[in-house]
Each structure stands twice: as C-alpha cells, then as structure tokens.
Design a protein around this nucleic acid. Sequence first.
DNA 1: GGCCCTATCTATAAAAG
DNA 2: TCTTTTATAGATAGGGC
Lengths: 218, 218
Amino acid sequence: MAPPQGKKKSLGRRKIDMKLIADENARTVTFSKRRAGLFKKATELSVLCGTQIALIIFSLGGRAYSFGHPDVESIIGRFFNRVPIPTPQESGHAMRIRAAMLHEIKGQLDEKSEELNTKKKRGKEIEAALESSSYQTTEERLDRLNFHQLQKLKEKLEKLREQIHRLVNAPPVNADDAVEPPNSTNAAGPAGTGELDLANVGRNEVGASPVPPDWLKL
Amino acid sequence: MAPPQGKKKSLGRRKIDMKLIADENARTVTFSKRRAGLFKKATELSVLCGTQIALIIFSLGGRAYSFGHPDVESIIGRFFNRVPIPTPQESGHAMRIRAAMLHEIKGQLDEKSEELNTKKKRGKEIEAALESSSYQTTEERLDRLNFHQLQKLKEKLEKLREQIHRLVNAPPVNADDAVEPPNSTNAAGPAGTGELDLANVGRNEVGASPVPPDWLKL
DNA sequence: GGCCCTATCTATAAAAG
DNA sequence: TCTTTTATAGATAGGGC
C-alpha cells in the first residue's frame, strides 16, 4: 500500500463497489479474471495445506467450472454424510431395494412421529395440570411418570436411528452398470459431470429379490 | 516497493514454495488465512458477477466450511443435473442428489442420537440419584428439569421427521432452470458438525413434477 | 497443558482494474 | 500492460474446548 508517485501510463488498479457490475462486458472480463484467480487460490490452498476442497462455478453463460481435491464428488459426499468414501455406482436392482427400504423407514418414522405426538400432547396436559396443581405429591408422581415414558421413547428413537444408519451405509447389492473411471484431481475448467453415484435410491424393475438382505431387516 | 527505514518488525510477505507446508503449525495458520481469503473472493465473485458458486472446504481437523450462492445444495444439484446424460425415465442425477440429501439426513439423525444418548445418560444418573435420595424437594427439581429438556428434544425430533418426510416425498430434481431469482447468500463458516441447515433439507425448488416417481412412492 | 483455530501487525508478493 | 489495491508470509498472541 505504498503510494508512489510519478508518471503514470495507466491508472492502475481501481477500487470498485462491491455490487453487481453493471456493464456486461466489464462483468465478463472480471468474471474471467476472478474465476481464474479463485481456482488458483483453491489449488494453492489444497497443495499448501493438503486439504480437501470442492469449488463449483457457473459462468454467466451457464457453463460449469469445477475444481476438487481429491475430486468434487468425494468432497460433496463427505460434506453430506461425513463419510470419506463415496458410494459406488449402483444398479437399478439395488436402487429398487433402496426404495423399499425408504418405504420401510418412512413407515417407521410416521409411526414414531405418531407416538411422539401423543406423548407430547400428554406431556403438555400434564404440564398444564402441574401448573394448576397445588399438591406437591401429585405433581411429583405425574412428573416422574412422564419422565419414564420419555425414557422409553428415547430408546425407540435410537433404534430407528440405527435402522436408518444401516440403510444409508448399506453396501451395494450389485453393479450391472458400466462405470467411468473415477477422476483424481480435477483441473479447473469447463467441467464434465462427475459420475458420482451416492447411494442411489429407486428405479423400479420387476422381479424382487426373494430374500431381504440382512441389512434390510428392521 | 519503498524500502522502509531502519528497523523492521517483520520481513513482510515472503515467497513460498508451492508444496505442502512442512511445519504443521504454519500450515494451520496458513490454512486459516487462505481459507478466509478464498471465501471472501468467492463471495465477491458471486456479488460482482451474480454467478452461482459453491465452495466446500474441510479443515485439517476435519471441520467443514462451506459457501454457496444461492446455496450449496442448489449448486450441487445443478452441477449433477447438467445435461450430459438425458436419462430416460428417471434421472440418475436426481436420485444422486436425493441420495446425498439422505446422507445428510442421516448425519442429522446421528447428531440427534448423540443428543439422545447424552440426555439418556443424564436421565439415568438422575434416576439413580433419586433412588437414593431422601430429599423430596431435590428429587422433584431434578425430575422436572429433565422433563422439560425432553420436551424440547421431542420437538426437535419431530422437525427432523418432517424433513425426512418431505425429502422422501420430494418430486424429482431434474429441471435445470436457466434463470432464477437471486437468493440470499450463505455465509461462510464452520459447517462441520451440525452446521447444515435443517430447514433446507429436502427442499425442492425447481420445476416440480406433481407426481413422485414410482420408485419413491411410499 | 494440548489442540485447533483466529486475530494482529508489518512488509512484500500477487491480483486485478 | 502497468499501477494500485489486496492478499498474505512470518511471527506471535489470544481464545475456546
């Protein structure tokens, strides 16, 4: 930030407002420069510190530019589920099973939700009763009762969580899709879609597997 | 480039090799600074040019930091939904995204479960204490306290249930809209353990088909 | 105390209008 | 391109858990 003076052939870098650049031409130029700068910085950070980074930018024209170390997909996968290894490609069959799982889980959730609602309501009633109650002994008994009910409810919810955990981390059933090789570090630039496939759900095919896999058991 | 006078308190910015910084301490400091710089630049680019950007960084310690304009999810969704494979019936990309979201949900569940465990443990301790307690007043107070905590926990779990419900019933995420209203920008910040915005999970903004795909019908 | 992260300061390297 | 504005290396201190 030294303010040297003398003869200027150019005005040099000027300060600009931090708002959308009105002139489209200037905006495009700025976009190009800053995008390059951003990718460079991202690259440097990943190199200097060896950290995982994902950067995706859509240009004004709709083109996508991406950078990822080690690759965009794994970062996103980790971001969403905090698991370093992204799930591999899965077949429609596997997806169908997943769909069934989802169905199952949702049912469980609805059930539990119902239970929760009931408990909650009762809890509120009791609370209200307690408010107006003048007998410590009664208040105490009711309070205790609800406490134990809630204990049970907690346990149920824990089981549900465990089930979902198993679903989400379920191993692929089989793979009948051709898969493209995973990238290593992506270069910045117009990006092709990374063929990530995180635990895909769905796609109906006929012919169910006769036996639910172990991890499906609830 | 003005050579400062006499005594220097610092050598100023030095040039460094573009390779992994050996000293862990220095690496951490550099990471912090550069990460901040990167987020700033990303923000500026999105503001100046109005472009869509997503940036995810994992710290050395495993914490996640993210920035997205308009938000990380939509950028990722758009990234994976981009043309490449105009899949027939169900877009694998859409499923991918949903799957990623599922993983996110699972993470949330894990967190809640953690909470449950804590509460449960505390509950048991308190119970034990109550058993051996001879003072009704103390017993009562502790019991009440836990009861209220559990009430709150129930509410949180209900919200989570709703998110999952919406996610599971969400219409396909296929439409790749060209234009969209500028949204608010996510602030960069620790996104690791439990920073993800629950409110946005399972949200489905783009062209929704009124009917959920068969494989997802629950 | 240890770990991990952030803040401050100065002088200089690098970005960007 | 060329100058000005910014980012940040290096050193150190502070903060939260």
